[in-house]
C-alpha cells in the first residue's frame, strides 16, 4: 500500500482533515487549494474559502488552478472584491483556519519565508511573507506544511516572518497582542506535529505509514517531544485520493 499514494497526496489529505465543516478557510497556494477542494467534496461541504487576491468561494473551482487568481477560481465565486476586505474579515477573527507555506519552521511553530542567514547579507533571499504573517497573526488557528528536512525543521528560525508561539512560553501570543490562537499543526512528508492548547512546543502526534519515530528524529533539527501515544497517520481514503488526482492531473 505504501506505493499507492505519494507523500504529497498524503499531506493534502491530512491538511484537508484540518478543515471543519462550516469553517471559513484562508486558502493559500498549491497544497491548500487542493486540500480545500478535498474537504468540500468529503467531510466539510459547508466550508468557505477566502483568497487574499480578493475572492470567497463555497465550492471548488471548476478547473485546475495554478494560482488563486486563475480564471476558474473567479467564475462562480460568492464574492469578488479587494484584498483589504478579505483582510478585514480576518482581522475581525472571522477566519477559522489558515494555511501557510514555509521554507523553515522551528519547534515553536515560527516560520521563516524571508531570509536564510543575516537579513542584511542573506545566504538565501526567500520570497517573503505574502499574506503569511497576516494569517499567522490574525486567523483563529493555522497549519503549515513542508518537506521534512533537517535544514527546514530548525531549532529556532533566524528570522521570524510569521510568528507561531514565539519563544514557546505559555500565553506568548496573548501577551504580544497577536489575535489568533496560532499554529495547531505542522504537516511534513514524514509526520504530523501538533501544539499544546495555549502555545508551546510542537510534539510528534503521528508518523506517516512507512516511516518511524527514528526517521523523524534524524531529520528534525531539535530534540523532538512525543505525544504520550504517537500514532500512525491515516492514509488517504479512496475518495480523498480521487479528488486529489482529479484536480492535479494537469500538474506535471
Amino acid at each position: 500500500m505504501s506505493e499507492a499514494y505519494t507523500p504529497q497526496e498524503l499531506m493534502v489529505a491530512v491538511a484537508s482533515r484540518e478543515i471543519r465543516d462550516g469553517d471559513l478557510v484562508f486558502v493559500g497556494m498549491r497544497l491548500p487549494i487542493l486540500a480545500y477542494a478535498v474537504a468540500l467534496t468529503t467531510h466539510a461541504p459547508n466550508a468557505r474559502g477566502l483568497f487574499e487576491v480578493g475572492l470567497m468561494r463555497d465550492r471548488p473551482a471548476g478547473a485546475f488552478l495554478g494560482t488563486m487568481g486563475d480564471p476558474p477560481n473567479v467564475a462562480g465565486a460568492v464574492w469578488a472584491t479587494r484584498m483589504s476586505n478579505a483582510m478585514a474579515l480576518m482581522a475581525q477573527g472571522h477566519v477559522d483556519l489558515g494555511f501557510i507555506g514555509g521554507a523553515e519552521v522551528d519547534r515553536f511553530g515560527n516560520l521563516n519565508t524571508s531570509y536564510v542567514g543575516d537579513h542584511a547579507k542573506p545566504k538565501v533571499k526567500l520570497p517573503g511573507s505574502g499574506g503569511g504573517a497576516d494569517i499567522a497573526i490574525l486567523s483563529r488557528r493555522w497549519v503549515t506544511s513542508m518537506s521534512h528536512e533537517k535544514r527546514r525543521l530548525v531549532d529556532r528560525v533566524s528570522f521570524v516572518t510569521s510568528p507561531g508561539h514565539g519563544d514557546g512560553s505559555r500565553g506568548w501570543r496573548e501577551r504580544n497582542g497577536l489575535l489568533g490562537g496560532g499554529p495547531v499543526a505542522i504537516i511534513t512528508t514524514l509526520c504530523v506535529f501538533r501544539f499544546p492548547e495555549g502555545g508551546g512546543e510542537a510534539y510528534l502526534d503521528s508518523v506517516h505509514p512507512g516511516h518511524t519515530v527514528a526517521d523523524v528524529r534524524a531529520e528534525t533539527g531539535w530534540d523532538v517531544k512525543e505525544a504520550s501515544n504517537v500514532g500512525m497517520t491515516a492514509p488517504p481514503t479512496e475518495s480523498e485520493l480521487d479528488e486529489i488526482r482529479r484536480r492535479s492531473e494537469e500538474l506535471t
Binding site: M87, A91, S129, A133, T161, S162, G166, R173, N176, L178
Partner: peptide
Amino acid sequence: PTRTLLGSDILRT
C-alpha cells in the same frame, strides 16, 4: 495602525 505584523521580525527590518 494595525494588529498584523505584531511578533514578526519584519517590524525590525
